[in-house]
Design a protein around this nucleic acid. Structure first.
Lengths: 339, 339
DNA sequence: CTGTTAGCGCCTTCAC
DNA sequence: GTGAAGGCGCTAACAG
């Protein structure tokens, strides 16, 4: 808050005794500027503390080297993981990053606002944009766009998706391999693709082993700690309770563990618990939560990479990028002891 | 990616058979526009999927209702906590949020880039800005700016700081109250104000109890898990090892616990461990990490509140806002058993 | 090498 | 109530 008035390119020009365009040239390393002129202008820029106005700049020029990101909520753990990967990538690629989120929850629905934010940023401030968990089915933008974990099936933009079903299936195979036959499931937010596919993996896993899908073993959820806690309580109070519980994400798996502890059950001796996500906390829970890593941060990293690719080259064929999942075996699952 | 060409205000005007200025008026709910004209324009906007260009818009008008945030790293846990609070606040205040971080680590130093980002955003795209853990000592901006946990002492802008020293002192009083006399310390990043003040609290705590400050009990650190691990190993291999270790943040406290486990020590039976921050993971570590909550998210929330205040009213007196810390007693500290 | 001339898309006077 | 003109700060031709 030193100077109350922000210097413009014109101030620099006047001070340096040159024209605005010359200043613009040194600003963008364009054309050839006489070394002395260059020097002089640099000095003036320095002493005036001049910074080019992003708004004005991006209105005229093509490349801004700023990548945009539209997220539903900067506090969400999935989003945060993605951001970490994105952060890593922008440093590597020498880009700047703008994360946009709207708190202005007026009339419009989220899909509509999503689209609004995209066209707000992309092509004006940013020259490429990442949308996290988009629910909109189409975006109107002239600049590259990459979606991370999109909700709709029939999207028409490049996107990065996790192999949720496969990871979930692997988890089930592991549990079944340990001898578990009654496996409870805590669902995720049904409005998210990821949750649906994890659920599918659960069912496929049972099917594959010729085990029945029992309604009473399936609890709805919403990816929160609480739903895991509540769901587990219900499952554990069943006449014939499950010997293992598979939660659609780590957050709810933690809830399950807490519910088990509350009920006096030991994990994994009395109950095996499987999560999904491998969030940072996971390695600390009850000696290490067995879970499925879906490398969320890698998704963010890849998104940036795709964007940069898209900017350089023209659209490639490979529009859908799958990120592998991996079963992380820790200490919350154990073989069913035959009693 | 439906339409390849983005509609401008002019397209809307032409389509609706009015002038640009009229469209601008309905866009901003300015003046009086004939209801029918208003209606018609709204419809055209809808069907064209028009969104006003942020860059152009913010270049002309005063209020954008967008709050900016400049952060060193969107992946950093402190930053994330702050963002959570900010996110909560913007929803409440009906603002949008732009988080800016630069990966373009070219020539310039971080303080310089910090300043650059601020003037880049503020006044052009945003009409108020939050800088997290700024290291710059001054900013040139005409619009409100609030700093969260600033590094320098002699800042001249409104800021929100945690009462690090007091919280740290409380932690020490607690440990000493439990009977500990040899208390190890794992330091934090010395370039951060917070770390310095936590260290001060450690020393003050010892002083206050007439205990000596012993160099060998103090390990340098950098707020990482690893430094906690390494530091603890050194402390525990001392001829006369400490009975308690106070780490400058939770992350390193977790490292301490891991080192203790590795060394076959039980926490808290054989070693008490105290953290600082109360990050989400904290409640899961070893039955719950005893730590000091500095309500980081609250700092973010307050920052937004101050900003909005600053925008409405003129500068107030209360430029420095302290956020309380609170000792969170969990299960990693216990009374020294006299053996 | 450098200055001049046009705008980018939008908002804001000022007329009508 | 509405349109026309001017300009925000900047970059991209085009002249010199």
């Amino acid at each position: 808050m030193s100077q109350k008035t922000i210097p413009t390119i014109r101030d620099v020009a006047r001070e340096a005794g040159v024209s605005v365009s010359t200043v613009s040239r040194v600003l963008n390393d364009k054309d050839d500027v006489a070394p002395e002129t260059y020097e002089k202008i640099q000095i003036v820029i320095q002493q005036l503390g001049y910074t080019s106005n992003l708004a004005a700049k991006s209105m005229r020029s093509r490349r801004t080297n700023v990548i945009g990101m539209v997220v539903p909520d900067v506090g969400d753990s999935f989003t945060i993981q993605v951001m970490k990967g994105v952060n890593r990538a922008i440093q590597e690629f020498g880009q700047d990053l703008i994360v946009y989120t709207g708190g202005n929850s007026t009339i419009t629905s989220w899909p509509a606002r999503e689209q609004q934010y995209v066209s707000l940023l992309n092509g004006s401030i940013t020259d490429g944009i990442i949308v996290v968990a988009p629910t909109a089915i189409t975006f109107s933008t002239a600049h590259p766009l990459v979606a991370v974990d999109p909700h709709p099936e029939d999207i028409e933009f490049p996107s990065i998706i996790a192999t949720n079903r496969i990871g979930s299936l692997a988890a089930m195979e592991y549990l079944i391999g340990l001898g578990h036959r009654r496996i409870g499931f805590i669902g995720g937010r049904t409005d998210l693709q990821s949750a649906l596919r994890r659920f599918q993996g659960y069912k496929d896993g049972l099917c594959q082993a010729n085990l029945p899908i029992e309604e009473e073993l399936i609890q709805p959820g919403d990816y929160t700690h609480e739903c895991g806690y509540v769901g587990a309580q219900k499952l554990l109070s069943l006449a014939n309770p499950p010997t293992a519980i598979f939660a659609a994400n780590d957050q709810s798996a933690i809830g399950v563990i807490h519910a088990a502890q509350k009920a006096g059950l030991r994990v994994p001796e009395d109950l095996s618990v499987m999560g999904f996500d491998n969030i940072p906390e996971a390695s600390y829970i009850g000696g290490g939560l067995t879970t499925v890593d879906q490398f969320i941060d890698k998704m963010g990293y890849l998104a940036v990479q795709m964007l940069v690719d898209l900017q350089e080259k023209s659209p490639r064929e490979n529009y859908l990028h799958r990120v592998d999942t991996k079963l992380i075996i820790r200490n919350t699952c154990q073989a069913l002891n035959p009693n």
